[in-house]
Design a protein around this nucleic acid. Structure first.
Length: 119
DNA sequence: CGGCTGACGACCT
DNA sequence: GAGGTCGCCAGCC
């Protein structure tokens, strides 16, 4: 389903086209699971844009309903650079039943949200 | 309009 | 395991 500002959040969030696609893709990650930047990037066409996924999430307003905390690096590490955001991410992940230890999601491979149909 | 910037990923010492 | 390098490409000066 394409991104819908009415369903997914304030219009303010949907400025740049690419960011909107990132936000929409992040919305497809179910609660209690985590996806990697590379997975989101592949959903949008190329793993090469993984860095842009991070930038799009970094530019996300705090009031956003985008579940940015479910996005981690390819090895399960929490890639947040902002300490406050990372603490928030850990808190939210634990709230969804996920374990976080030493900056990594516990049993990451068992909780990773993989996407079918992507080589 | 050209160059720089990365909440990354894969690969190599 | 811990570092470093290179590629990726939409935004933003």
């Amino acid at each position: 389903m394409p991104y819908s500002p009415d369903r997914h959040g304030p219009r303010r969030l949907v400025g740049p086209g690419f960011h909107a696609r990132v936000h929409a893709a992040v919305h497809t990650v179910p609660a209690g699971r985590v996806a990697t930047y590379g997975t989101i990037a592949r959903l949008l066409g190329s793993v090469g844009i993984a860095r842009h996924v991070g930038r799009a999430l970094a530019a996300l307003p705090a009031a956003s309903d985008v579940p940015w905390w479910r996005i981690v690096a390819a090895n399960g590490r929490l890639a947040c650079v902002d300490p406050a955001s990372q603490r928030e991410q850990i808190r939210r992940l634990r709230h969804e039943g996920l374990g976080v230890a030493r900056g990594h999601v516990v049993a990451f491979d068992e909780h990773e949200h993989r996407v079918d149909g992507v080589p």
